[in-house]
């Protein structure tokens, strides 16, 4: 692994056909250094979420390449893509998407099960992850009984449990008040610095964007400004 540089090369993505055609991304190119934190900033409908989906291989653009660690992930077969996502990537969403009826422990354990981590190796990883977000006490509680901030911390625990190379965060503080939002941000950036995980944050929050090493501003599917990028 080592140098997991992410290169977005001339990516274009459209939705719909003929008259109703809508261009979500138009010729987007940039490069992210290994272990960097990047903010993709834009208003809703600007194409920033589509960019995240394309970069994580959930969505396929019509044109362009996503090169991660020297490989164009868009050429991967579904099985290969699933394996790549389960071992290298992770996600945090605005509305948490924790499984309310499962215990915190089982929520965090899910990515390990998907990645076929042996049963015995799971416990230590889950415990370490829950400890990192200070939810060890809540191990047996159902996720639906947690507060919003706790839920997002649980989502972070789930996201980091399998030690991903790239962590996507889609408006991670969008549903939280500023105090709890702060805590979540701190957790994310601390993890980014300590483990060298590339952090890609999609947001419209300027303050959050400013904490990142690099900012990519998007409007109507096009990059309008890039700051902090290595030349």
């Amino acid at each position: 692994m080592g140098c997991e540089v992410i290169e977005v090369q001339a990516v274009s993505k459209t939705y719909g056909k003929k008259k109703n055609i809508f261009t979500a991304l138009r010729d987007v190119s940039f490069e992210i250094a290994d272990g960097a934190s990047v903010a993709i900033v834009g208003k809703s409908g600007s194409g920033k979420s589509t960019l995240m989906h394309v970069m994580s291989g959930l969505d396929k653009p019509e044109e362009g390449q996503i090169v991660i660690g020297g490989e164009n992930i868009l050429t991967f077969k579904p099985k290969q893509m699933d394996k790549f996502r389960s071992s290298e990537m992770s996600f945090i969403f605005q509305s948490f998407f924790v499984q309310g009826n499962e215990s915190c422990y089982n929520n965090v354990s899910l990515p390990l099960e998907i990645a076929n981590v042996p049963f015995r190796a799971r416990k230590a990883k889950v415990e370490r992850s829950l400890a990192a977000v200070e939810l060890t006490e809540k191990r047996r509680s159902r996720a639906r009984d947690l507060s919003g901030g706790q839920k997002q911390r649980l989502a972070i625990a789930r996201a980091i449990v399998n030690e991903p190379k790239i962590l996507f965060a889609d408006e991670p503080t969008g549903n939280l008040d500023s105090a709890t939002g702060e805590v979540v941000q701190d957790l994310l950036f601390r993890y980014n610095k300590e483990n060298g995980t590339t952090l890609i944050v999609v947001t419209h929050d300027e303050d959050l964007a400013k904490r990142c090493d690099m900012q990519v501003y998007i409007k109507d599917g096009e990059i309008v400004k890039m700051t902090g990028a290595k030349s």
């Binding site: 959930l58 579904p78 099985k79 996502r85 996600f91 998407f97 990515p111 998907i114």
Partner: peptide, 16 residues
Amino acid sequence: TSQIGLMKALGMRRRD
């Protein structure tokens, strides 16, 4: 729906 979407994002196979 969202749970299924999350599992897919985390790399869970369609078959699974």
